[in-house]
Design a binder for these strands. Structure first.
Lengths: 340, 340
DNA sequence: AAAAGTACCGAAAACGTTTTCGATTTTGAG
DNA sequence: CTCAAAATCGAAAACGTTTTCGGTACTTTT
């Protein structure tokens, strides 16, 4: 059982392929009578245009490519969810690839996508990506490109980000306004830029409110994906400072949750003895007890916005309208729960 | 800047397109000298075959389609992770679609994938899917199809599942062997088959160990995605039975976590006063305090196996070898932590 | 009745590749 | 030097679609 083609319809109706094609595309130089015959037969045979042929002919695939570091992550799966829904609504499909934080793989995947003839590409760069030739290649091929979350500032394309620095600043300011003064920070060393920005926001908030910045209150956490680091750092924090610390701002929720486990175990009251704010607002933050205040990155909004920008650029390209690239900052939101 | 084609190479070398094509495919009737010239120039021009042309010519797309109910879920994102990695290793790409538990959408997506000319399709059916004509269409088109997790028993294709009933049976048996006797069950009404099978496994474990099945210990939880239901059911359970219940087996981890929150709040000791086992082994289970015993569904293994079976069928199809469909049950694993 | 206009249709080229089959050249044997 | 065999190449068709450009046939105007 093979799909019907224009040729099949033409043969059955005793007319040319050209006429069939034009009838289906509602060209004015086909009589209503033939149009009707063609349409009904096409309907009956379940005709759908062969996408390879259209791709070859028109260089459009109704497909976009998406590269992210990893799928198994609340933030990224939500972003993908949004992107796929946007694509769906435009009858587009999405090819998803995971760079797995591997630069070489990311490069190869870009080649695969270009070769596949995707109409546009969305990327959140791997942490290891320092060289952007593969991105330049996309631009040189005139394929619309939108970077999100982990971007390359130097590239000439649209970019969607959050303001890590401001988000951190707001969170720490909230703690200060609540009366907390000795505020520790669990920072990460991975994701350099995000981690650095959050640290800078933390620091600036302290300075702007005339609170001395104490480097001894900053703990470097190696492992971004293991919550035991939060537990251990909390233990170290208590050992080093004891009562002389009243809040923690962590670079992500996982570390905060590890810390909460430690405090629960040691009967240290949250938020009375120590308050916490995390970052990312994972689903877990609302589930844990006490629930964790955190910064929502609006992952869905980010995916949605990125996709919308991309589809706009794709539209412009097909219509021959020049596009100017946008840089959009998605607002973050401080979600206050029981931990502070 | 456009990708190089066979024609470009042929023109530059003053030979025919045919010879270029054959040189690159290492045909025996091309001299080593020309092969060398062609290959070096192809390398230099970064030649990659146009995938539309190949698709049109050979009816193969090096692409598979995957339809799942939703992306934003630890289980499914892990499955997708595995599938994409398997695809990657074979130079295949994956088109991912979310049915969003909507039958009509699932049907439309199947059509889109078939039209796109994917080489194979993986589906975890939506809960609302009762009619399988769209799946039959895939089979009629001779496109390899593998169903996983949520399957349709009647379809003539390969299927990958877990044994919900056995998994539940094992978990409850573990509790019984540990000395627990009054074991409650928080069941769900969504995902009918899974939910039912887990309930049946629970019941059979009790009967097989001469423990009376008490319907009053079974609580129906409406909402699968809100953990407050676990909290509330735990409260109700304590109200109804108080000390006369010593363990709970929940249909998923979220309900268990809600319950844990309640018990922590009320200072009810886990596992001394009440023990818990969840289902699915979400990441959260290991993070919460006390950590939650649960049943691991081996999502990665399921994705990996499904993809391997699919690619095998694709291979067979291209080689003209007949395939016989497999039904594989992925072993579950009882993960014991502090909650029991 | 001739000229001009309109309505309808189809041939052909193009997109880039693969593969069959026939053509040409080269080689080696007698 | 002749001729068959081997080596090397290319023309052409096919995959299914879109679009340009002519070509009929019919209608209307002078």
């Amino acid at each position: 059982m093979k799909p019907a083609t224009l040729k099949d319809i033409a043969k059955q109706l005793g007319i040319s392929i050209t006429t069939v094609s034009k009838a289906l595309k509602n060209y004015p130089d086909v009589s209503e009578k033939t149009k009707f015959k063609v349409r009904t037969l096409a309907e009956q045979l379940n005709y759908v245009p062969n996408s390879f042929a259209i791709g070859l002919r028109k260089q459009e695939s109704k497909t976009i490519g998406v590269i992210i570091p990893t799928m198994v992550h609340y933030f990224f799966s939500t972003v993908i969810d949004a992107i796929l829904k946007e694509a769906e609504s435009r009858n587009y499909m999405g090819i998803i690839m995971q760079s797995n934080e591997d630069y070489e793989l990311e490069k190869k995947q870009v080649d695969l996508l270009l070769n596949k003839g995707v109409d546009g590409i969305l990327i959140s760069l791997s942490n290891k990506t320092r060289d952007f030739k593969h991105l330049q290649k996309i631009i040189d091929y005139h394929v619309p490109l939108v970077l999100f979350d982990k971007i390359a500032k130097v590239m000439d394309c649209s970019k969607i980000v959050i303001d890590d620095r401001k988000a951190a600043y707001d969170a720490v300011t909230y703690l200060i306004n609540k009366g907390y003064r000795r505020i520790a920070h669990f920072r990460g060393d991975l994701n350099p830029q995000n981690s650095i920005d959050r640290f800078l926001g933390y620091k600036k908030a302290l300075l702007d409110h005339n609170i001395e910045f104490d480097p001894k209150l900053v703990y470097l956490c190696d492992n971004n994906s293991d919550f035991t680091d939060g537990y251990n750092s909390a233990a170290k924090l208590m050992h080093d400072h004891g009562d002389n610390v009243d809040a923690i701002f962590t670079v992500n929720d996982l570390l905060a949750i590890g810390a909460i486990n430690y405090f629960n175990e040691k009967q240290i009251k949250i938020p009375d003895q120590i308050a916490l704010i995390g970052f990312s607002n994972w689903f877990m933050a609302s589930v844990i007890s006490p629930s964790l205040s955190s910064i929502d990155q609006h992952a869905y909004k980010m995916g949605e916005t990125s996709a919308k920008i991309l589809f706009n650029e794709i539209d412009c390209k097909f219509k021959g309208i020049p596009v100017k690239h946008e840089k959009i900052t998605i607002d973050t939101e401080l979600i206050i729960r029981d931990s502070c």
